[in-house]
Design a protein around this nucleic acid. Structure first.
Lengths: 116, 116
DNA sequence: ACATCATTTTAGTTTTATCTAAAATAACGG
DNA sequence: CCGTTATTTTAGATAAAACTAAAATGATGT
């Protein structure tokens, strides 16, 4: 496992955590990862991928012009479970939020309101 | 427990981890904590203490002019064990180092080969 | 009230992290 | 070779974190 200090530093960034979550169970190309986080440039994502790669928290596989990344769960040791729990909690949080939103006023189901 | 994201952000800093380690099992005054890290000013330590306090990772008790801090292990959830493991590893590392040092001029112990 | 001790707070500086925009690389198909 | 696609890299901008020095606070003893 990478040094605990290294892992902690890497996991401190929400951006990197989000990337890890995306490539946790399946490998994804850099482009796909970027499409999932459209608030930053491709370059920014690529830099975070590099940093995760250098810390040994993801691995990359090249296939023609694409590069597929996936999490190296074994490099995370105990933190793997911590992250999973974290994401589960978040999911739970989102579900709860959705429920609350749905119940907010009677039978008017999936209707999304935008931030103003 | 404080939000996982908050805890991760807090633990990313070696300085804050060191403070936590110091006040893990016993409460210590701000001054004592500072004396244990003489490479920074008292002010810097105080700021980190405040940040840990705001994140709920330590608690403070005032006694006359001193302020005693101690870790709130329960706020760290799973991370408490992670940190302890981390410190144990470090201890192990230090012991190893001490052994190596001690054997540096003994009666020819097992020699360790370095990577070149 | 004054002096001292322990600590916090403020304001500004330095350092580090993260981001963008643009240029560079590399693989592929005409 | 050229143009397109996917990605990385570079250089510089912006933002956030950590630090310092000095001033401020607050409790204590005289």
């Amino acid at each position: 496992m990478s040094s605990q200090a290294t892992v902690l530093a890497a996991l401190a960034s929400p951006r990197r955590r989000e990337i890890l979550r995306l490539v946790w169970k399946e490998e994804l190309s850099a482009g796909t990862i970027h499409r999932a986080m459209p608030d930053v440039t491709f370059g920014a994502v690529s830099l975070q991928l590099r940093s995760l790669l250098e810390d040994g928290l993801v691995e990359a596989r090249a296939e023609s012009r694409r590069r597929f990344y996936r999490a190296r769960r074994e490099a995370l040791g105990t933190f793997a479970e911590v992250l999973e729990r974290m994401w589960d909690d978040k999911l739970w949080g989102l579900k709860l939020e959705a429920e609350l939103e749905g119940s907010r006023r009677g039978p008017r189901p999936r209707r999304r309101r935008r931030k103003t």
